[in-house]
C-alpha cells in the first residue's frame, strides 16, 4: 500500500513482476463471494427446488432466454458461460463501490479494458469456432473489400468504447458521491448512491448486452452470407 493513482486505485503490494492493486483484490473478493454462493446454493440441488435454487435457476433461465432470442439453442449453450459471467460479475463489481472503503473494480480502466479485450477476443473465438477461420475473416470483406478498414476501425473503437463507457460511468458515480460527501456531509450522497444502484445495474446490462450482440454478430455473419448464396 505504498503507491496510489489519483483515482484511488492503490497498489497494495508486488507479487514478483505483478503489482497487486485494490482492483485485483476486490475482484478476488467478488470471485470468492460468487464461488462460495455457488457452492452454497448448489450443495443441495433437487428437482423440487428450494428458494435459493429457484432464484439461481431464475437467473440462468432469464439469461438463457435473452441469449436465446439472438442465437440458436446450441450457440446459446456455448455462449452462456461467458455472457452470464459478464452480467453476474459486473452487477456485483459495480455494486461493490457502495460499500464504504471499497472501490468498484469497474471504476478502474485496467479492469474494464481487460473485460473489453475478452469480449473482443470472444467475438472472434466464437465466430471462428462456428464458421471457420477463412469464412469468418471473409465477412470483413463483405459487402465490399473497400469496407475492410471501417470494419477494423469498428472492431477497435467498439472495444475501446466498451471499456471507457463502463469505466467512465462507474468512476464518475463514485467520484460524484465522494465529492458530495466532502462538500455536503454524511447523508447527502444517499440519492447519488441510490442512483449508483440503478446505474450499476444498467451499465452491467449494457455491457453484457453489447458483448452478446457483438458475439451474435460474429456468429451470424457467416450464416447470413450462406443464406444469401443459397438458391
Amino acid at each position: 500500500m505504498n503507491e496510489s493513482n489519483p483515482l484511488g486505485t492503490a497498489i497494495l503490494f508486488h507479487l514478483g513482476p505483478l503489482a497487486l492493486t485494490s482492483t485485483v483484490l476486490t475482484t478476488w473478493g467478488v470471485m470468492l463471494i460468487l464461488w462460495l454462493a455457488s457452492r452454497l446454493v448448489m450443495r443441495g440441488l433437487h428437482l423440487q427446488p428450494g428458494p435459493w435454487q429457484t432464484a439461481a435457476e431464475g437467473i440462468i433461465e432469464t439469461i438463457s432466454a435473452v441469449i436465446g432470442e439472438l442465437l440458436t439453442p446450441q450457440q446459446a449453450r456455448q455462449v452462456l458461460p461467458f455472457v452470464a459471467t459478464l452480467w453476474i460479475y459486473l452487477v456485483l463489481a459495480n455494486l461493490v463501490g457502495l460499500i464504504p472503503g471499497l472501490h468498484s473494480p469497474t471504476a478502474d480502466l485496467s479492469a474494464t479494458s481487460a473485460l473489453a479485450l475478452l469480449v473482443f477476443l470472444s467475438v472472434h473465438w466464437f465466430g471462428i469456432r462456428a464458421n471457420g477461420l477463412r469464412a469468418y475473416l471473409r465477412h470483413y470483406l463483405t459487402p465490399t473489400p473497400l469496407l475492410l478498414p471501417f470494419h477494423l476501425i469498428s472492431e477497435i473503437t467498439r472495444t475501446v468504447a466498451l471499456a471507457v463507457r463502463l469505466f467512465g460511468n462507474i468512476m464518475s458515480l463514485e467520484m460524484a458521491a465522494l465529492l458530495i460527501l466532502w462538500v455536503a456531509g454524511l447523508l447527502a450522497p444517499v440519492p447519488i448512491l441510490m442512483l449508483h444502484i440503478v446505474e450499476a445495474l444498467v451499465q452491467a446490462y449494457i455491457f453484457g448486452m453489447l458483448a452478446l450482440i457483438y458475439i451474435a454478430g460474429g456468429l451470424q455473419s457467416q450464416q447470413l452470407r450462406q443464406q444469401k448464396e443459397a438458391p
Binding site: 493513482n5 483515482l7 497498489i11 505483478l18 503489482a19 492493486t21 482492483t23 485485483v24 485496467s110
Partner: peptide
C-alpha cells in the same frame, strides 16, 4: 486514469 498492465493481465 492510466492503464496498469499488471491489473489488466490479472483481471
Amino acid at each position: 486514469m492510466e492503464l496498469d498492465w499488471s491489473t489488466f493481465a490479472l483481471e
